[in-house]
Design a protein around this nucleic acid. Structure first.
Length: 499
RNA sequence: CGGGAUGUAGCGCAGCCUGGUUAGCGCACCUGACUGGGGGUCAGGGGGUCGCCGGUUCGAAUCCGGCCAUCCCGACCA
């Protein structure tokens, strides 16, 4: 932000001045096209979504950012409950010995774990792990709670914070501490666990697409990318505005791995004693980052109405005594809209209208209602859309239903726009030279045949920085050779450079 | 964790190289007035242990060391 003109002369034409002020503002947020990463950080800070704390990698989620998270949470929680799950809460601390019970699990998480070694002024006999995820503690409890097949399934979710000591952090996308929900279920059969894993995956996709207007690809993770200790991991993957992919949710079929490590057994219908089949799945505050990076533009945040803390902002406009003439009418409209179930705020601060317009645009409010003397005369208001920036006069009569309809339109068109962008940035090739060429820069997804070997996967990553995001279940089985080697292709894999 | 950069008021910066009154500027903020349909004008005002700790010096924002945090580029992850 370079600041406005320091000149106090009145010689500058009014228009010129306005333009200069506009330019000055525009520089307040780095242009998205110019530096996506800096743009993202600017939006997070200027829209007051989050702020840095004194602890490395730990952010403060500010009220506006938290409100977005709460709306995502609410939508997700409702779906989790509607599918028969219940919420509970497990402890933050896990005895180190429990984490180490599942070999792959501990190997995967050990480097990222924070420990508590002292308490009450004394060194602890056994250090405590600050949970990076809760399989260990929940598995331990399930072992106590499950005796016979009638105790199954157990379908528990928890909303919690977890800590992973990340080397590189970014607000929302990767923080040392983050908020999430983690579901942990136990089942009688392998098939049931697999059904559960996929049901949740579909549920996650629905939340992203319906609530957040973010299109995602559902698929299975490769061995190297799967969750530490899982049998199979599935994910939903979204494409950000800079052409990089973001894992937006994961669902794991744990098989009997954790059941065996934690002795979670039950007596089956045939009287035999068996280990349960487990799943775990989670989505995190990272989703807020996804919403920013998928929909945002040069002016800042663009929020899909369903996760917008304010869906409509009313900006009163007027002369001299506007507080007496315009404000009462604006308050009336606010009440009317709130009564129709619209999340609405009225900006009655003593600022100039243009200033307010820009501010609320930066904060991504989907619709702005302007009301001034001219509108009152016509018994109408001006409605401006954040996504298209169109501005129309709309009669006050029937305003709530008209706005509800517009909010739907915005939600739909944001999804359509994001889907189009994703599709335009999804390529398909079976030629490695072409693959490498496409992967220069930030192209989005590249669909390519893969033999399934970890070696090819690692080589491709080393040579192009691209990783296998997942292998969609809907993908056809390819007939030719692997993109990199001469072995027959077994999977259709979606590659991308990822966050 | 390696390579690079940065840290001075809420934000953006100057000052540092060459140590020396009371640390400066723009925006933002506060008070008042005029204004008000895309970031307005005038007048007056408040706000800073110069990231933290230590060293050198008569004297440190400035020189030296350590630490912390942030950003960018790589290796690891939601």
């Amino acid at each position: 932000y370079t600041g406005r003109s320091t000149s106090s002369t009145n010689t500058m034409a009014k228009q010129e001045k306005a333009q200069q002020a506009k330019d000055a503002f525009v520089t307040e947020i780095t242009a998205r096209s110019q530096d996506f990463s800096q743009w993202y950080l600017d939006v997070v800070r200027k829209a007051e979504l989050a702020d840095y704390s004194p602890v490395k990698g730990c952010m403060v989620i500010r009220p506006y950012g938290y409100a977005i998270w709460e709306l995502i949470q609410k939508a997700l929680d409702a779906r989790i409950k509607a599918t028969g799950h219940v919420n509970a809460y497990f402890p933050l601390f896990i005895p180190n010995s429990l984490l180490t019970k599942e070999a792959e699990h501990v190997e995967g998480f050990a480097p990222q774990v924070a420990y508590v070694t002292h308490g009450g002024g004394e060194e602890l006999e056994e250090k405590l792990v600050v949970r990076p995820t809760s399989e260990a503690i929940i598995g331990t409890m399930y072992a106590k709670w499950i005796q016979g097949w009638r105790d199954l399934p157990i379908l528990i979710n928890q909303w919690a914070n977890v800590v992973r000591w990340e080397k590189v952090t970014r607000p929302f996308l990767r923080t040392t501490e983050f908020l999430w929900q983690e579901g942990h279920t136990a089942h009688e059969t392998e098939a049931e666990a697999e059904d559960e894993t996929l049901e949740i995956l579909h549920l996650y996709k629905d939340v992203l697409e319906t609530e957040m207007a973010v299109p995602v690809v559902e698929g299975r993770k490769s061995e190297s990318e799967k969750f530490a200790g899982a049998l199979r991991t599935y994910s939903i993957e979204a494409l950000m505005g800079d052409g990089r992919a973001l894992q937006a949710g994961t669902s794991h079929n744990l098989g009997q791995n954790f059941a065996k490590a934690f002795d979670i057994t039950f007596q089956a219908r045939d009287r035999s004693v068996q280990h349960v089949w487990g799943t775990s799945w989670g989505m995190t505050t990272r989703l807020v980052g996804a919403a920013i990076m998928v929909h945002g533009d040069d002016s800042g945040l663009v929020l899909p109405p369903r996760i917008a803390p304010y869906q409509v902002v009313i900006v009163p406009i007027g002369r001299d005594n506007w507080r007496d003439t315009v404000l009462p009418r604006a308050l009336e409209i606010q009440r009317e809209l709130a009564g129709a179930g619209i999340r609405v705020t009225l900006d009655e601060r003593d600022e100039r209208p243009g200033w307010k317009f820009s501010e609320w645009e930066m904060r991504g409010v989907p619709l702005r209602v302007e009301i001034g003397p001219k509108d009152i005369e016509k018994s109408a208001v001006l409605v401006a859309r954040r996504d298209t920036r169109e501005k129309h006069s709309v009669p006050m009569e029937g305003l709530p239903s008209r706005l509800l309809q517009l909010l739907d339109d915005v939600q739909t068109s944001l999804f359509a726009r994001a889907t189009q962008f994703r599709d335009e940035h999804t390529h398909r090739t079976s030629d490695y030279a072409e693959f490498k060429q496409i992967m220069e820069g930030r192209p989005g997804f590249v669909i390519a045949p893969w033999c399934g070997s970890a070696e090819c996967e690692a080589q491709i990553k080393a040579e192009t920085q691209a990783t296998i995001r997942n292998m969609p279940m809907s993908g056809s089985t390819p007939s030719g050779k692997c993109i990199r080697c001469d072995n027959p292709a077994r999977y259709e894999a979606w590659f991308a450079k990822a966050y």
